[in-house]
Design a protein around this nucleic acid. Structure first.
Lengths: 130, 130
DNA sequence: AATAAAACAGTAATCATTCCTATTTTTGGA
DNA sequence: TCCAAAAATAGGAATGATTACTGTTTTATT
């Protein structure tokens, strides 16, 4: 039913995301692509970001800053949100697996997964605060 | 500087929240209070929910459904979001303490805390799905 | 090349939340 | 108890991210 058709814009959005490690928002993707595609529309960016998320090619990060961020690295890893400058950084740490089992014990529903991220001061803001 | 003044509306908002375990949204609080306070305004609800959060008397839950939920229980505990019906439920489980230390190891910034919640099917939706 | 389906650009609409302003309430002192 | 200053309110306008709509363009298939 889906009958997905190829599009240059979708390729460009995915390629752009793959070049960045800062987990940009839809608006940043839009701005970044306007040089190469002056007529690309914000709606197209949103639609494709959602589509790529549904396809499992990228992941959407919904942190507490109220704006969605997107990450081309779909592997399980943790994120950090700086409460001062708002930047988002990958954290290098092992996966906490048992946590879903802990949550499921004594719960009659079905745990499909969890959302976990960290917040505080990023290295740059921490240095600046001294 | 703060010079907080008493208000019936703020009392009512806090009292309403304390009667509920379902972590209502601002709009639900607003609707629930309109019987007793027909003229209460949505802005007042939002302002006081933010104020009470800042005072540490309630906590704001920012889950991935895009709407803020509020909880009068400020103790550390975990939440579950049903991906089908959208309900939010408290989970009975021990606190995972070392997770912040794990995240902080090898990270040059400062970890202030983490956000962790679970998602899946609530007991009612799980039963219905069989 | 002809056709149908999908994607697009551009724009309007939605929805949660915040902001603004004139009025009302609270509170501490005369 | 009355007064004045500060804080809070109601009501409505504004914001900002995201989604929906529509007529046009692109893609893929025969």
């Amino acid at each position: 039913m889906a009958a997905l058709k190829h599009s240059k814009q979708r390729d460009a959005i995915l390629a752009f995301l793959m070049t960045r490690k800062d987990h940009p928002t839809a608006d940043v993707v839009y701005s970044g692509l306007r040089e190469e595609y002056p007529n690309i529309s914000l709606g197209t960016v949103y639609r494709n970001l959602t589509l790529l998320t549904d396809l499992g090619q990228i992941q959407r990060l919904r942190l507490s800053d109220g704006v969605d961020h997107f990450d081309a690295d779909t592997s399980q890893h943790y994120h950090f949100l700086c409460t001062k400058c708002g930047c988002v950084i990958d954290l290098e740490m092992e996966t906490i697996d048992r946590i879903n089992q802990l949550a499921g014990a004594g719960f009659d529903g079905q745990i499909a997964g969890n959302v976990t991220y960290f917040y505080g001061l990023c290295p740059a803001c921490k240095k600046e605060n001294k």
